[in-house]
Amino acid sequence: MSGPHLIGTSALVDGRLLQDEQEVAIAEGPLEEMLRGLYQTLTLDYPKFHKMDAVSKLGLLLTEPLVRMAREHGADITNDMAIAGMGRSGCSTTDQEHWRVRTATGLASPAVFVYTLPNIGLGEITIRHKVFGPSVCLLADRPDAELFWNTMRCFHERDGTAWAICYWSDIFADRYEAKAVLIGPGSGRPLDQRMLRTLFDIPT
């Protein structure tokens, strides 16, 4: 198995979904409207999207270009792909919505409650793309290059998966952050921790 290489990147900045720094979709408006606009622009045709909470939608849109890219490179998404998701506030926005409904009505909404786990967005990505391989949901104050690097090594050297997506996504109030990298074998740039630090804009 060859060492890990950087195959591609994606990011969502100011309503622009970028793949390798090139715009692939753009949408405007408040967060939910913007996410819906990106979904339409990408013509995903995935009705489950509309049931998801915002942070799950964000993760799904962010990783969509990278999964497509992996397929174009011949990756076996189902059996040979791992995913590490990382965020700061987890599903806090949904937690607050669950608690608002709970206290306002005396009852909880099952449709909201099932999204009050930080890893559900990751689960949605595995469901959409039939990823049976390993995945881990990590929480940290800020993107952590060492944690991404070590986790990616675990996937590669311990679990034996050749392909991995590492992403940072976070939503709190109307602020969002979303960046992702696709790592795989072959002919890209050999990956190291310093490169991850640069890609995720982590100060040295």
């Binding site: 786990l117 559900i120 881990v136 311990r158």
Partner: peptide, 23 residues
């Protein structure tokens, strides 16, 4: 290192810890 993978978090944390030591 915080792992929050729903109800597998505790088992996955042991696996992750062992992987970090092995690496």
């Amino acid at each position: 290192i915080i792992i929050s993978n729903a109800c597998i978090s505790g088992t996955l944390a042991i696996k992750h810890a062992a992987d970090l030591v092995a690496l």
